[in-house]
């Protein structure tokens, strides 16, 4: 299966990665060659096989739904590129 420039633009946007228009043809070609490599999977008979999620056959662990930690806003914010008054600061979200 090959990916068109338009599809490459769409997937880049879904991934939230800016790709300039002039880079789209090369990207489309690269993604196509990787997908082509994956096409081999179509040779396998997977009739009746359950898709595997994890390697250990165990029920996901549960814990009580209670607060176990917190009260460390300064630590949470210490690596933020822009933090003000105890919040993460971002550009305008709502028009």
């Amino acid at each position: 299966m090959s990916i068109t420039e338009n599809e490459a633009r769409k997937v880049a946007h879904l991934a939230r990665i800016r790709v300039e228009d002039e880079a789209l043809p090369a990207l489309a070609q690269e993604l196509s060659s990787i997908l082509q490599f994956m096409e081999q999977l179509n040779e396998v008979d997977v009739e009746g096989v359950e898709p595997m999620t994890g390697v250990t056959p165990m029920r996901l662990k549960r814990r009580d739904d209670v607060v176990t930690t917190g009260e460390m806003a300064d630590k949470v914010l210490s690596n933020a590129p822009d933090a003000r008054e105890g919040f993460f600061a971002v550009p305008k979200v709502v028009e």
């Binding site: 997908l35 179509n42 096989v49 999620t53």
Partner: peptide
């Protein structure tokens, strides 16, 4: 076509 199929093949590899 891709993700679920790959997970099924993974089950076969295991």
């Amino acid at each position: 076509a891709y993700y679920n199929r790959a997970r099924k093949v993974r089950a076969l590899i295991k």
